[in-house]
Amino acid sequence: MIEIRFHGRGGQGAVIASKALAIAFFHEGKHVQAFPSFGVERRGAPVTAFTRVDDHPIRLRNFIYTPDHIIILDATLIASANVTEGLKKNGWILINTDAAPSKFRNLSKFRVATVDADSIAVEYKLGTPTSPIVNTAILGAFSKIAGIVSLDSVLEGIRDTVPSNKAGNASAAKEASLRVLT
């Protein structure tokens, strides 16, 4: 079983990202489960979402405490929440930021990757320049670094889940897969 945890803020699309990623794995024949941990649903509030993937039907129905990988849609969460809690050794931390992975010295015991998903989302007119919707870009980057789900499958997942501008969202994912830094 592979468990992935998303940390974002309301409005960035973390919940849709967890579902799009699940559908990507589903297209590759896996059993999947995706769900959010809702708090008070409002723009800007911290949101956690989860994706589980397995070769067998998934019977576990509780939160993810020891994820294999972590995807952070808003880098300011690193300071305010214990986002790496329970992360397994050799797990990826993918962060939406314009900084290089080497800037995150306190995370050096994990594998860190970064991608400037904000800029990519703005470029493809996803959300607004002040509140870009970064979920699809970050999934493209995740596909590239983790190597456990193909970019084509991620694009399928995006097409199935995003409500509008499907072409722009797909392009953002492709672009991010090229611009992710490790």
């Binding site: 967890s18 579902k19 699940a22 059993h31 999947v32 769900f35 959010p36 129905r61």
Partner: peptide, 10 residues
Amino acid sequence: AFFLSHTAEA
């Protein structure tokens, strides 16, 4: 609530 209502699966 949430464990089914908002959980996506096949």
